[in-house]
Design a protein around this nucleic acid. Structure first.
Length: 631
RNA sequence: GUCCAUGUAGCUCAAUUGGAUAGAGCAUCGGCCUCCGAAGCCGAAGGUUGCAGGUUCGAAUCUUGCCAUGGACGCCA
């Protein structure tokens, strides 16, 4: 075969060629695409052959579903069209003789030699994952720390989903900018500063509890009892109660004014206040970093880009909308209207103040115009759906739907569901407070450790005799892996119930099950004690149905990562890995590895084990779950 | 009131985006360890995909109406 010019010059090969060698489905797509063109003419140059894995092994490995659709378009019987495609298709070296079935499905069985060839191709560092050609960065907005507040369950999902998406995109070679859009500016922060000052707290010895207290007090003190007022008026309750409430409201107003003054001073750069403000952030972040480390996410203070970062951009944002005629005054406030809905978006208050929408617009502008990102991903809970719809539409109106170099920008909101308690209501402690993330993780780690220690007690267990420290470390990986897998393994939009017992279960569709599968493969390879170079060069023998099934499963990995990256859906990877673990376990049950009939078969199967292990470890890595060697 | 999600086996969830007989895992029942890690494997049972219509060769998926649950709805973030 003559190498292509690109290969000679050392350039990256076109993706179609990459796929042709690693992915039988893509090879079939090319062959059938050509066949459709030959059989039906130039009008059908771009029609998709619709290659799918079969639902049933009886139908072969892949099915071609194009004939039905084409039959409709041509007003001809689909089976007849299928036959013409079959007469035109060249499957030489790739597949056995295909068959037409049902209304016009074409069933294809891949030749064993082609399977072996494809496996050889993915047996490399890339494992069949196709590199992306897009050099624009992707911004992922995740975590969403609020300064002066502890992380709670609400932050769990944003953080681990965002981290997984980042790893998946990076795996395809994209440049990912993780940005933690800190809530570090505005009235609530000023209020906390004000409270800490009147409480006389030494900010150099600031603790998390002080912040919690100040925040809660601030909320309480400033909250006007509007509802109480309405009830009193409705029911015509005595005047002394009204006076009491009015006094309370007056107090609230005073507190608000004090906070507002603090905010103004902060905005004007009052040196002492700014220094105090920084101490507040540092204190919050110390606790956050501790949790992020436990969670095993690729996120740190270097990814902080809070609201305060955009504060000088806000007047310019307003100008853009006013000058462009995109916003109008309404009741004193500045609003953006949309052609297809009633609901407007407020971007400036009647008193001239800015809103979170203003900051979010500034952030989009910065990410697109200054950072040149062509994909901006917001991992924020589903309740903010409407807000992001407005935000994205407004940003496009302002011209930020295209990068400076003319590339369309994809703005996506990942609207994840809530974490619920066993009562199916948002997770709360018994006293009604939000559950802190720290306590949640401590529970997970403690449960993981308990399980690992318990099993190590069995003298037949591979971990028997491990030190307490080793077992603790393994247990931590198991506990954290359990909650991450439980979170990532279902469709993100759904709510889910936080049930530690189910998550930590070592059987079924769980993180620990996958970690176990990985550990077991490691164990097989270690016990075989074969020279790794010999194994990695051993010819693959695909004979048994279980070997064939494993081969097909392994070949799905790369294309699946591409799909998961395109749709930003980590749960596809979970499904894929669980399928791989099951297929491997089945293979392992049916095909002796160490005791295989011949040395050639033994090395071939060891090579399949090694490839399975690497794919499993790679996939777990994309989910941010530790691939444990012994557990 | 308006708008937006969600509704699939007893329970928790999938379904390659319109494809063949709707699949997994728990739980239940039955097999498999003097045998490479039984944290495993093999099998059985379990369904009017919320309800009713529509679109077509073909619908859990698209469409219309209704029901249920949750959420968002102008100066909080």
């Amino acid at each position: 075969m003559i190498p292509q010019a690109g290969a000679i010059l050392g350039l990256m090969a076109p993706n179609t060629d990459f796929f042709e060698t690693i992915d039988p489905a893509a090879a079939l797509r090319n062959r059938f695409s050509d066949a459709i063109l030959r059989a039906l003419g130039d009008d059908f140059r771009d029609s998709d052959p619709v290659i799918r894995a079969t639902t049933n092994p009886e139908f072969g490995d892949f099915q071609v579903n194009a004939a039905m659709g084409l039959g409709k378009r041509l007003k001809r019987p689909p089976r007849e069209v299928a036959l013409e495609i079959l007469q035109a298709v060249d499957l030489d070296g790739l597949a056995e003789e295909p068959e037409i079935a049902g209304p016009g499905f074409i069933n294809v069985r891949i030749r064993t030699s082609a399977l072996v060839e494809a496996l050889n191709s993915i047996d490399a560092d890339h494992l069949g994952v196709a590199p992306s050609k897009d050099t624009h960065p992707v911004v992922i907005d995740l975590c969403g720390v609020n300064v002066a507040k502890q992380l709670h369950v609400g932050h769990l999902r944003s953080t681990i989903i965002g981290d997984a998406l980042g790893r998946i995109l990076e795996r395809r070679g994209r440049t990912v900018l993780r940005e933690n859009h800190l809530g570090d500016w505005g009235l609530p922060i000023a209020m906390v500063l004000h409270r800490l000052r009147i409480a006389g707290i030494d900010l150099d010895a600031l603790k998390l509890v002080d912040l919690d207290t100040a925040y809660r007090d601030g909320q309480l003190v400033t909250k006007m009892d509007v509802r109480g007022m309405e009830i009193v008026e409705d029911r015509n309750i005595g005047p002394h109660r009204i006076i009491e409430l009015e006094e309370q409201n007056e107090g609230a107003q005073q507190q608000r004014n004090a906070a507002a003054e603090t905010l103004v001073a902060l905005q004007q750069g009052d040196a002492e206040l700014v220094s105090d403000w920084q101490k507040l952030i540092d204190c919050t972040m110390r606790a956050v970093v501790d949790i992020l480390e436990k969670l095993n996410v690729l996120l740190g203070t270097e990814h902080n880009r809070g609201e305060s970062f955009y504060r000088t951009h806000l007047p310019g944002i307003i100008d853009t909308f006013v000058d462009g005629g995109l916003a109008v005054r309404d009741d004193g406030a500045l609003i953006v209207r949309f052609p297809d809905r009633e609901r407007p978006m407020l971007i400036q208050k009647s008193n001239g103040g800015y809103l979170y929408a203003t900051t979010d617009l500034a952030a989009i502008r910065h990410r697109v115009v200054d950072e040149n990102a062509d994909r901006v991903v917001y991992v924020v809970d589903a309740r903010q759906r409407d807000h992001f719809k407005d935000l994205f539409d407004a940003a496009r109106m302002a011209g930020w739907g295209v990068t400076p170099d003319g590339h369309d920008v994809e703005m996506v909101h990942i609207p994840f569901g809530s974490v619920l308690g066993m009562d199916k209501k948002p997770l709360k402690t018994r006293s009604g407070d939000n559950v802190t993330l720290a306590s949640l993780l401590d529970e997970a780690i403690s449960r993981g450790r308990t399980e690992v220690h318990r099993r190590a007690g069995d003298e037949n267990a591979p971990t028997h005799g491990f030190s307490k420290e080793e077992l603790d470390r393994i247990g931590e990986g198991v506990g954290i892996g359990a909650i991450k897998y439980a979170d990532l393994s279902n469709d993100l939009v759904r709510d889910y119930v936080f049930d530690m017992d189910r998550m930590i279960a070592f059987e079924g569709d769980t993180g620990p099950y996958l970690q176990y599968a990985h550990a077991r493969i490691c164990s097989i390879i270690a016990k075989a004690d074969e020279d790794p170079d010999v194994v990695s060069n051993a010819p693959l023998i695909i004979g048994e149905p279980a070997e064939r099934a494993l081969a097909l499963q392994l070949l799905q990995y790369g294309p699946m990562i591409t799909e998961a990256a395109r749709h930003l859906e980590p749960h596809r990877i979970c499904t894929e890995l669980h399928g791989l673990a099951e297929t491997f376990n089945s293979f392992y049950q049916q095909c002796p590895v160490r005791k295989a009939a011949t040395d050639e078969l033994r090395r071939s199967r060891l090579r399949l084990c090694d490839l399975s292990r690497r794919v499993l470890a790679d996939g777990l890595g994309l989910l941010g779950i530790e691939a444990i060697q012994t557990m």
